[in-house]
Write a protein that binds this DNA or RNA. Sequence first.
DNA 1: GTAATGATCTCT
DNA 2: GAGATCATTACC
Length: 185
Amino acid sequence: MRSTPLTYNTTRAFYARPTVEVARDLLGTILRHGAAAARIVEVEAYLGESDTAAHSARGPTPRTQVLFGPPGHAYVYLIYGMHYCLNIAAEREGKAGCVLIRAVEPIAGVGLPTNGPGKLTRALGITLEHYGADLTGGSLIVCAPARRTTFDIGVSPRIRIKKAIDLPLRFFIQGNRYVSGSVPK
DNA sequence: GTAATGATCTCT
DNA sequence: GAGATCATTACC
């Protein structure tokens, strides 16, 4: 049994920045849900404007309203009728933009694979009940490591979307074994 | 009301 | 490479 790293909660200001910056800075942070903890190793940025691949591209809808609300809140949705995906709203209130958590590295209390968007939500027990949850305080939170670790950040186009596939908005920790093995077609 | 779509995963 | 499986969205 190893001790988990000392951590401090992320702040609202952390998320109230350009989506791409938030996405990059989320790499290496700790996602906690109850007793489960995992390190974020792969993310994708979805921009609110001029990003046809984003759910927020065509304006607010009942589902995407949280993306236009205050940053630092969870956007969870069911995809393909089977899997939940966890996103974190970025940008200031009134402007859409979010970061999809694609893969995490288990730290404690995780007994299932986490190398994929649908897998990590299942492994951490994240469901629609977390829709709109405040990730700066609550049962589901994101913490930053007390000791900053350094790593190389890899960049690539986003995976398995059908629009705007040319944009390099996927970020991951270079060489980390928990980065999803999915390869764009 | 009806139909198309999809930021996935698992098995073959 | 294909199927599972359903909420959301767009359109009639």
